[in-house]
């Protein structure tokens, strides 16, 4: 069985509205990021891969299995939705146990795996706490634990750090990297920091279309020589903003330190610098769409 997700000519519709247009992707093992704005179609693609939405048009296979064979697909995929919620009156352990049953695990398997997983996600001490009483971060960790309980080959995580505070976000990213192993892990996100730490390959989705598909380093190369940093007066900011796309900005008193995109040196004082993922993403969006 090839450890690969193959998406070919995927077109997805909600009613008359087309939300995915001619998506072609091959996703192998490792961490794969799907980046895009809100409403770009990321969640729709995730839900198709998780068999929550039937394919409108196109061919999708997961590890050689056609997506229409739902039962087999669900055996090898784990899904953490953007909004993770579970029966509030169950304890953490009961929730994991029940989800283990639904995942097709035997009692012996569940008894063996659940405590280990809860320990891994730092929820073992909370195993008797009701799900309804968990914080957002704890719920998210419970979500990832249930997604990998049955040791899926494919892990689909939609907006992994949505709703988490800064510390929880870092912890969660580290956790994901830890559990990735030799799985196919697909992360959909609009937060650049989610990708920076661990994703090697990335696809950028905009208005339902893939506008970039490749490695992170290749994406960075696209923006090479186009990213400048400068420190300007606050009063000059509106003029510069009108002329150049700004990728980041930090205010300090009367001055602003910023990074901008330009084919050549925009003005005196601007320095060429190494592109980051955020810069490259913004460059891509500007290049494809003409404006940000």
């Amino acid at each position: 069985m090839s450890a690969e997700i193959k998406i070919s000519g995927l077109n997805q519709f909600y009613g008359k509205k087309q939300v995915l247009k001619d998506i072609n992707l091959n996703i192998g093992t490792g961490m794969f990021a799907l980046l895009g704005r809100n409403g770009a179609g990321k969640t729709t693609l995730m839900r198709v891969l998780a068999t929550l939405l039937p394919v409108s048009r196109g061919v999708v296979t997961v590890c050689g299995i056609p997506i229409s064979m739902e039962a087999q697909i669900r055996r090898i995929t784990g899904y953490l939705p953007q909004e993770f919620s579970f029966y509030a009156n169950m304890t953490v352990y009961e929730a994991m146990d029940y989800l283990g049953v639904l995942s097709g695990l035997s009692k012996a398997d569940r008894q063996e795996k659940i405590p280990d997983l809860l320990a891994k996600v730092n929820l073992l001490t909370k195993k008797k706490v009701k799900v309804g009483a968990l914080s957002g971060g704890m719920k998210r960790r419970l979500g990832i634990a249930q997604a990998i309980l049955h040791e899926p080959k494919v892990l689909i995580v939609d907006e992994p750090t949505a709703g988490l505070d800064a510390e929880e976000r870092v912890r969660f990213r580290n956790l994901l990297s830890e559990i990735a192993g030799d799985r196919i892990v697909i992360l959909s996100t609009h937060i650049i920091a989610d990708i920076e730490a661990s994703c090697e390959r990335i696809a950028v989705l905009e208005e339902g279309e893939i506008i970039y598909n490749g490695t992170v380093s290749d994406m960075l190369r696209l923006a090479e020589g186009k990213i400048y940093s400068a420190q300007i007066k606050k009063t000059d900011l509106p003029g510069i903003k009108a002329k150049y796309p700004i990728t980041s900005m930090v205010s300090s008193g009367n001055h602003v330190s910023l990074r901008l995109i330009s084919d050549e040196k925009p003005f005196e004082g601007a320095c060429l610098c190494e592109a980051g993922i955020e810069d490259a993403y913004m460059y891509l969006m500007q290049d494809k769409r003409g404006a940000i």
Binding site: V129, K130, G132, A133, G136, G163
Partner: peptide, 14 residues
């Protein structure tokens, strides 16, 4: 209080 949490602290959908 609901489920040991203050009702205003329950996030999302219980």
């Amino acid at each position: 209080a609901i489920y040991g949490k203050r009702a205003s602290n329950i996030k999302g959908k219980p």
